[in-house]
Each structure stands twice: as C-alpha cells, then as structure tokens.
Design a protein around this nucleic acid. Sequence first.
DNA 1: GTTGCTTGTTAAATCGTTTTAATTCTGAAT
DNA 2: ATTCAGAATTAAAACGATTTAACAAGCAAC
Lengths: 339, 339
Amino acid sequence: MRVTIKDVAKKAGLSPATVSLALNGKGERLSPRTVQAALDAARELDYRPDQNALNLITHRSNAIGLILPDICNAVFARIAHGAQERCQEDGYHLILCNSDGQPQKDVEYCRVLADRGVDGMLLVLSPDTGGYAAECSREIRKAQVPVVLIDRESREIAAPAVCTDHELGALLVVRHLLELGHRKIGCISGPPGVPSAQQRMRGYRRALWEYGIEQETGLMVEGDYRTESGYWATERLLEQGVTAIFACNDLMACGVYRYAVEHGIQIPKNLSVAGFDDAEFSDVLAVPLTTVRQPSFTLGRAAAERLIAQIRGETVPQEPEVFPPELKIRASACPPKSV
Amino acid sequence: MRVTIKDVAKKAGLSPATVSLALNGKGERLSPRTVQAALDAARELDYRPDQNALNLITHRSNAIGLILPDICNAVFARIAHGAQERCQEDGYHLILCNSDGQPQKDVEYCRVLADRGVDGMLLVLSPDTGGYAAECSREIRKAQVPVVLIDRESREIAAPAVCTDHELGALLVVRHLLELGHRKIGCISGPPGVPSAQQRMRGYRRALWEYGIEQETGLMVEGDYRTESGYWATERLLEQGVTAIFACNDLMACGVYRYAVEHGIQIPKNLSVAGFDDAEFSDVLAVPLTTVRQPSFTLGRAAAERLIAQIRGETVPQEPEVFPPELKIRASACPPKSV
DNA sequence: GTTGCTTGTTAAATCGTTTTAATTCTGAAT
DNA sequence: ATTCAGAATTAAAACGATTTAACAAGCAAC
C-alpha cells in the first residue's frame, strides 16, 4: 500500500497536520524536536505526497499541455525539446499531443487538456486552422487556462505568441546568394496557403528589391514543401537560366540535388542551392546544404518561459516575440561561374 | 469559477449523489425524469468533472509516462508517435520526458513519474545504462507501476519488452547486397558498447556465413554512428577493394556518400551503399539510400498496447516481443561492375 | 394500524492532503 | 490558587468527486 501522511504521523507519534507543517517548511511555530521527528519518519518510510490529493487542493496540476501537428517533424521535435527543458526547470511536466495536422484535433485536445486541468497550454496550430481556431479559442476561454501560441499568430485566439522571423531568414539567405554574385536567382515557394511560406517569399522578394533587381514571375515556381516538387521546379528554373536556386525548405532543396545528380549538374560549381529549415540531414548531405536554421529550440524554450510567467500571474506582453533564424553557410552555394 | 457537481445539483433541484449517479449511467434505480433533469442541468452548465478529484478516488491518473533519450531523434520520435496514438485510443495521456541520454535522468524521471501517479511507464533506456538500470528498477518496484521496456531488454528491470530485430535487419540488407552479386562487402559498425550495434554486426556476419564467405577483419571498420566516422571508414574500406559498403546506420552512410562525391566515385555505379534506420532523409537524398526501416512506430504502438493490457490487469507474456525491420530497396545499391 | 416490501433519493463516508481555528499545556504573574 | 499569555500541537473543514448504506414514501397484506 501507498505510504500516506497518516502513516508518517503514526510512526512519528504526531498528528497528520503537524507532519504536513513540518514537511512543508511551515514549522516555524513547531519545536525543532518535532520537526526533526517528522522529517525522520518521512525519510524512513520514504513518504511522497500524493500528487492527486495535492492537486485537488491547490487546483494546479503542474502539467503543461503541448499540442503540435507532428512530433516526427524535426522542427516540432526541437520545439518540444526546448519546451520540455524549460518546463522541467520549474517542475512542470509536458503532456504531448499530436494533432496530425488536423485542426479539429487541435480543438479536441484543447478541450481534453483543459478538462485534465493543465496549468497552461502551448499551441502549435495545424497548418490550415480554418474555422477551428475560433473553437480552440472558446475552449481556452472557458477553461481560463493560460496559452502561448508558437510559430503562428491568430486573430481568433487572444494569446501571446512566439514566432520565427521567416521573412528575415529568407532575406538573409537570398542576400547571401546575391553577395556571392548571383543575379538570376530562382525561388521554389511553399504551398500558397501556409503563412510561413508566404513570409519566406516576401523575404526573397525584399532581398531582390534591396539589390534593385526586377522580379520575374518566371523565376518564382510554386512548390508544396515536398521533394518531388523541388525536382520539377528545378527543371523549369534551369530553362530560365538561373545560376542559383533558393528552395523555401530543405526537402525541396533535396529535389534540386536529385535533379542535378540525374542531369550531371555539379553543385555548387554549376548551380548554387540554398534551403530553409536546417533539417536534420542538411549538413550531412554529400554537399552540405547552405540553409537557414529556424530557432526552434529557442522558440520552445521561450514559449514555455512566457507560459510559466503567465501561470505565475505576471503580465506578459501581448505582442508576439519574434526570433531571428540563423544563416548556415555551407558548401552548396558559391559564386557563379561567370564572375 | 469552476462548475462543480454541486452547482449542477442545485440547478436540477437534486443532490450531488443523484447527479453523479445519473451522469455516470448508474441511474437504473433512478426515475427517468430525474436522470433527464440531471443531464439537462449538466449540459446547460457545461459541467465537466474535475480530473484531480476523480483521480484521488480512483487512484488512477489516466496518464502514461514515456521516457526517451532524445525526442529530436527520428527513431524515438516515431516511437513516441506510435505510443501516443495507441494511448489516445484508450483515453490515456502521454507525459513526455527527455533523458538526454543520461542514465541518471532515467532514474530521476522514473521517480518523478511514479510520484505523479502515472498508471504506467514506457521506457527507452539511455544507451549506457550502467548501474542506473538497477536504480530505475527500484523506483519502479516501489511504486508498483506497470512498465514496458522499448528497444532494449534489461536483466535488472523485470518488465516485458518490445524490440527491433536488429540482427534480422542487417541480415536482410547484407543478403540483398550478396544477391546483387557483391562478394567483398565492407561494414562500418556502430559504437562497440551499444547492444543494437552489436546485433547489427551479428547480422552482417551471419549473412556472409550463409553465403560461405570468409570474414575478413579488414572489412569490418569501427564507427560511432556519426557521419564523420563513415567518411574515414570509407577510405579504409576502399583500400581493401570493396564493391559495397554496409553502414550500420544512415548517418554513417552519408559519410560514405560524401567521400564518394569528393573523390568522384559514383554511387551506385562504382560503389554500392546500404544503411540502417531509414532516417528521415534517406529517400530524399540525390541517390535514395537502400536501407532498413526500423519498425519504430509499430514498436511504440505495441509497447503502449502491452502497457495498457498490464494496467487492465491482464497478464502479458514476459518474453520480449520482437518486430522485424523492413528492407527498403532504393537506388544506392546495384550489381557490381564485374558481374 | 402495524408490518414489510418496493422504489426513488440522499446523507455521509471516503480518497490524501493543506490550512485555519481551536485546544492543550507550561510557567509566570496576580 | 486563579488567571493569563504565549508556545506547541491538533481537530476539523475543505477540495470535488464517487459510492454505500440509510432513509422516506407509497402501497399491499394481515
């Protein structure tokens, strides 16, 4: 059987109340002898308070929920890792929920976590929230549970957010290509509906604008964040005579690589390539990929940080906290041949 | 304020006890009118029972703990995903703990989770458990919490396990190379202390033995599961005149790729390569990697399955459940030139 | 008009803590 | 010998549910 505070009390010849006081450091009015007796008995029986009973009184669970679209995706895994580390520092536990990118599951998990009485929620919304964001918001408001949004703002959900500056990331990497001397730089975009993809495109365009280069629509090919789309986009971009390609994620950059290998095009000698994400594999490729590293781990930590502050009752700024990504210069981009 | 069962009772003009009975379908002795009134009131107030109070009575938390070395590693992420999916089906929540590969954290988390009153634990032990496995065992035994070990057995910890058949995986992939006609096959091993690495080596040797090929120690080079070691091992293996290389994980296979690119060796024309793990990047490489896919997702699901059975009080077989990995034939291996 | 049997409802105990207010005890002052 | 003030300890209420055993109320039977 479980050791309860009564067992400790009996062993120490005290009442449960006294033991509780002694064990929680509120024994300033107890005699030192008594405190010691309680401590000894507790240690001897290896007493640990029942968390459920404790939660019932304090109305806290010491648990934080994390909802994300796909734990197997490295970006989200890093966020989870960062959040977990920060939570642990304050004794919170992370309850992990995989929404599989289905927004209705976001809602479901919001409810389930609220029921469970989590002290707060970390929310990485599914790519197309559709009308479901409003429903999430309802659940959250009803449960009055603090929330921090990660990597995406939302008009519907009134909560602080921590975000990656995707535009800046794209800006940095395209600038890098420009500095190397490239002038005809192709871009493979992400799926049109996804906010992060749009921001990255904006960064690409802004970089060109900074250098006074006219934007040709032929140099912007739509992709879908998957390798295959990178492969075919490459064909079209090479027809336009590009000397460098910026793929809006690393997976599509792999498609570029594959096209290059199959067609005897050497990277970076004949074609410079840059990606976005710094996926697990990016610096492990035969030609390590120049890319942009999302500050995912930091994002996770920062989100947890803000959440914990909220739980403590501190007021946190409502404007999103934006983190800069980091340019990772590796071997896949060099000056164009003509330079 | 939170809506309690008292509020519902008051609204329905009933006692809390009656409402409880009605809401939990134990109202066979209640009049239909009463049950309906309770249901209506609960719905109107959107009443949800407090989980903490409920846990206190039932002595269950509906939570399952998952301890793993690194959530950012795809193999573990897939395990987590599988476990999470299975747990969700039975209404359990997964509490995620990252041990960072430090065995003392395994112990710490065992204790913390036990304190928290999880209904069961899923345990992917750190690579070198050292003496800490015994300590984990103590915590587990004291808390009397059901446990399932994942991907590793342990003499110290008496618990059912689910494992990957690493030996079979290596056997399959090396057989594949042999069937293609290779006879001089190099092998880059994992770190000597790690059980999975040893098993993979055993599979390699067994495949050669099946084909009556003598094992040359020069063809077995020690690696450490990292890309760099794959790179240097390749140099030594090529000196031995191998036509194919089996790297004990995909990361080291990437090292082989890099060496090949830098030295103008074409894969698979001049050198066949096979890996192990089916990492996220493996089929995205310019030359998609022939490798072995660990049944990680299945492992996670199966582990959760067994754990839930244990929690239900069913007796589960104590011998480990072993899952076969799957050979993924892709483009990095073909018949040797001489054939 | 008791007794006994259903049927429907609820008071009260329980789970393991914390916390507040009450209680007991000690010794000093009147 | 009372009274009183502080010091040390504890009884009891509370948290929000479930569950068991007890309680009314209605009705039939003797």
